[in-house]
Nucleic acid binder design. Sequence first.
RNA 1: GGAGACUUCGCCUAGUCUGGUCUAUGGCGCCGCACUGCUAAUGCGGUUGGGGUCUUAAAGCCCCUCCCGGGUUCGAAUCCCGGAGUCUCCGCCA
Length: 438
Amino acid sequence: MINVQLLRDPSFVEKLGLAAKQKRLDFDADQLAAAFENRRRIVGLVDEARARQKSLSNRFRDADHETRAGLQDQISRASDEVKVLTAQLNAAEAQVQGLALRAPNLPDPTAPVGTTDEDNDVIRHWGEPRRMEPDMLDHVELARRLELVEFDRAQKFAGSRSIALTGNGALLARAVLAMALDLLVVRGFRPVMPPVMVREEAMVGTGYFPLGVDDAYKADREDRFLVGTSEVSLVSLHRDEVIPLSNLPIRYAGVSSCFRREAGSHGRDTRGLYRVHQFEKVEQVSIIEADDELSAREQLALLDNSETVLKALELPYRVAVACTGEMGQGQRLKYEVETWMPSRAAYAETHSCSSFGDFQARRSNIRYRTSAGDAAFAYTLNNTAVAAPRILIPLLEHHQQGEGSVRIPRALRPYVNGLSSLDAGTSYSELVPAYAPA
RNA sequence: GGAGACUUCGCCUAGUCUGGUCUAUGGCGCCGCACUGCUAAUGCGGUUGGGGUCUUAAAGCCCCUCCCGGGUUCGAAUCCCGGAGUCUCCGCCA
């Protein structure tokens, strides 16, 4: 949410309009400014009317019968006036809210202006991309040979974009997620397994609604929605709070299933593990003081965590600063981490690292007590640590070593019982330590 | 799923039956001042949050805010309806 008070400044309205354009959002800043002005006017009228009614009501209370009868006319007129104006105010308020929830956050001045990912600013590469050779297999074929994934069987009863990770596929996904979670825990992030079914206010509060309603699944008859990322839950944990300064920064590592309808991407990436309706993700969320410099530093720290995961997995990647056109409504600055996927012959997004300024905090009413003693809206940031099954695409393809065998990167081995490679003959029991119930 | 109790300005709490100086009580915490060699203790004062208006600014004035939303009424923390949440008991369940 933007700070609507700023709408009184024409230069802010102008910036807002520009931001909408740069972010390619259908949003009219002047319309919002007008609605806000209208609301402010009506608030004044309502206040006056109520003050009149109040004093009349007090006179009425203290009056004798005769005086009361004389007041009757005035008092009922005042009462009606308040009712009428209040109705007007409610309508005006609803209009401001409706528009304000669609207003973009201003992009960071350093963000490249542009429309598509072509305009993103690639800032670094790591690792050596591996080209597909004739004897190499894509992840779908690898998964088939190693029996890691059920595609057809899952779609039979769950529909398109549904998969089941099975056998070593399930254990591999678990290993990657566990490794990423451990890394974050070591780096001071509090692990959280949050609710994935949340009320609408959490979706609105984190900026996914109203614009993204079509992308979310409605989970039950009580208006709960399935989150597309645990960020929604992690940020919402602190809804309506005033956080003591000493508790900041708050850093969470969320582990959850994520659900996305992928509306509007019909026919895109239908093959394989790239774009599925349900996946598992370890997510990083930070809640910090409202300070741009701190935010920039925190964002780089979150970014480094993701890069550390990819380096540990020995996967080539690149980092790009997303251009304005690729940014979401609330994002101020976004780094995209793209991992090399040989079968696509391209880097493809596996991580997204965003800063929101106070956008989410305003919507979620998350404040902190500043050293000056007053309550200010906090800043929030988030980034993927790792998401499966998508990460299995580069992991399988990049580390394949012929005959459908896949090398396990060293850092991952502790999470698969020390195994150094995987082939069709590997029993999934080899990926877990010998276990004897007490 | 059934029955009941509850939700008050950071936390706890009075007030709700019997609508109106509730312009919300008291305690804790916090802030300021006094006292004190320092700390503690004590005393006095202050302390919900938001909006409107005025102003260079501050102060002031006005309105809203007793979980949320409606209703009744001249007037609602208080009465009525709907929703959310917490707790207790029963049922079911991992």
